[in-house]
Design a protein around this nucleic acid. Structure first.
Lengths: 336, 336
DNA sequence: GTCAAAAGCACAAACGTTTGCACATCTCCG
DNA sequence: CGGAGATGTGCAAACGTTTGTGCTTTTGAC
């Protein structure tokens, strides 16, 4: 049987309430009593029952985290573990716990959220969805979304400045003399990619360059499924792009293969800057110049934000932007 | 304010206990009463408070999961997300929840386990550690380790048959005519790699081939840190290996690069079969023939096992073996 | 030496459930 | 028609904490 607060009280010859207060450093307990009780509790290896504690205090110190379902490749992306680590570390440091939103195979994000809120354990939610996020104010719990929500004005979220990132990637190539730059991996279902695309276009326009529809090729985000024929056509003519910005390293890598297949080499013939700075990208030949969106910090900030929210529910809607960085490797060549 | 069982009781004109029983399909409640109560509960959007419920029932339906600390690259490995998915899906299906063992940055596995057990929420633990697992019977909770524990006889675990896997990888090359096979990525700190090494040796011996110490090169498991000079020496002479089995795709990929750097190509000059079937391996040129250890199923089985344990604590120590499969791609060539 | 204030602690209620037991009603048999 | 068994429901205790209130003792000022 687990040792309860009553056992400690009996051992110390005081009442349970005194023990409780002593352990919480309540000033109404004398210094010496406090020390002694703590010592006894220690010796008895007493750990307060969280269920009981949470029942009365109405605080569980548990944050629910739900990942966008789908499974597939997307969850395998190195992005998620990093986020999880970030989340976990700050949770741990603040003595919070992380409850994973599971849901059976193939469940929707919605479903996972419901499971989590119904469970009644979590006092705050982080939903990490690459897709459109429904305005989920589930059961009155504070929700922060990781990624750009549709109704950004009255939501809590943490994200990169994706249009700035798209712009930066493009400008990186522009600065190095590239005049014809393609965009690979646009997926209108994913805010990230539409934002980046916008940044791409901005950079082009500010440089006085034309924006061509044919230069942006679509594919499912994080799924490595590009229409290769379209891609080949793009790189076929003499006026082919000399630079490409890719939405994800994986696409960049397959692009590399296709290019060598076509007799073109990276970065001599075409330069690539991509996103997400994955292990695969680092291992590629050549190693990819890629934009690191700092998933670890995204996780950290998200957790910090929910925790703030559960403590101060009145906090006005907040959007936190975490900076990206471009890590330079060998997939870009300076022209001219 | 949340709606409690008392509210429902009042609305239904019965006592809380009746409501409780009705919702639990207790046969002592009449059919019609049960239906009516359920209807009312539904309408009032009543969800029982899990804290209260757990307090009395002493069951939380929460399973703690702790990943081996370290962080670094290891957690970024695609292995973990898959495991998590497997875990999560069966947990969800059985209406269990997953509580992540966090621990602040750089904490040990030990520490994470402690945080989890002290929290008092979990009624079972899954510890996923690639390293030596301390015999953690923490606080009387059932613990299943994912991976090969040292004291396998009286532990609950799920794992691959790693020596069989190492053997299979080696035999795959032997069958294709390779007579000189190296082993890359041995790390004596990790049971997985020592088991696989043993399988490698067995395969060699059964084929009547000599086992050479110089043919196995060490490096930190899952960290891409091999002593390149040793590797170069190995592939320098005329009697260089024609086949290599690698402990992880990442190592295989860097090996590829080194080989091309040395003027050798894969698979023409040297064949590679590696482990873990990662995205990066799939994207490599050539795509790697790799052994898939089925992390998803590992996760599933582990969760099934703990759940079984929390229900039947008397279950005798069990080791579950999940089958691996070798997925054939283009990094192996048949000789002769 | 008296009294008020401060200090130190115990009592008991409350949090929202579950569950053993007792109670009331109804049915049916002798 | 009396009582035994079913059948359905309510009472109250229990789970292990926290916390408002009240009681006792000590302290210090006059």
């Amino acid at each position: 049987m687990k040792v309860t607060i009553k056992d400690v009280a009996k051992a110390a010859g005081v009442s349970p309430s005194t023990v409780s207060r002593a352990l919480h450093d309540n000033p109404r307990i004398s210094e010496e009593m406090r020390k002694q009780i703590k010592k006894i509790a220690q010796e008895m290896d007493f750990h307060p029952n969280q269920m009981a504690r949470s029942l009365v205090s109405r605080r569980s110190r548990i944050i629910g985290v739900v990942f966008s379902g789908e499974g597939g490749d997307s969850l395998n992306h190195s992005f998620y573990p990093s986020v999880l680590q970030g989340l976990g570390h700050v949770a741990g440091a603040r003595r919070y716990h992380v409850l994973l939103g599971t849901g059976t195979e193939g469940d929707s994000t919605q479903e996972a959220v419901r499971q989590l809120t119904d469970s009644g354990f979590a006092e705050g939610l982080i939903v990490l969805t690459a897709e459109d996020v429904p305005a989920t104010d589930a059961a009155g719990l504070p929700v922060v979304t990781l990624g750009h929500p549709i109704n950004a004005e009255n939501a809590y979220y943490v994200d990169n400045d994706n249009v700035a990132a798209g712009k930066a990637a493009t400008e990186y190539l522009l600065k190095r003399g590239h005049r014809h730059i393609a965009l690979l991996g646009y997926d209108k279902q994913f805010m990230v990619t539409v934002d980046r695309r916008q940044g791409y276009q901005q950079a082009l326009e500010e440089a006085g360059l034309p924006f061509n529809r044919e230069d942006v090729v679509s594919s499912r985000y994080l799924y490595n499924t590009t229409d290769e024929s379209q891609l080949r056509r793009l790189f076929d003519g003499e006026d082919r792009p000399t630079g490409v910005v890719c939405m994800d390293d994986a696409q960049a890598i397959t692009l590399c293969h296709m290019l060598t297949d076509m007799g073109l080499t990276v970065p001599q013939d075409v330069s690539i800057v991509s996103f997400n700075d994955t292990p695969a990208g680092r291992l590629n030949n050549p190693p990819l110049t890629s934009i690191n969106v700092d998933p670890y910090q995204l996780g950290q900030k998200a957790m910090e934000l929910v925790i703030k929210l559960v403590k101060h529910p009145e906090t006005p809607p907040t959007g936190m932007i975490v900076p990206f960085s471009i890590v330079e490797r060998d997939s870009v060549r300076t022209i001219g």
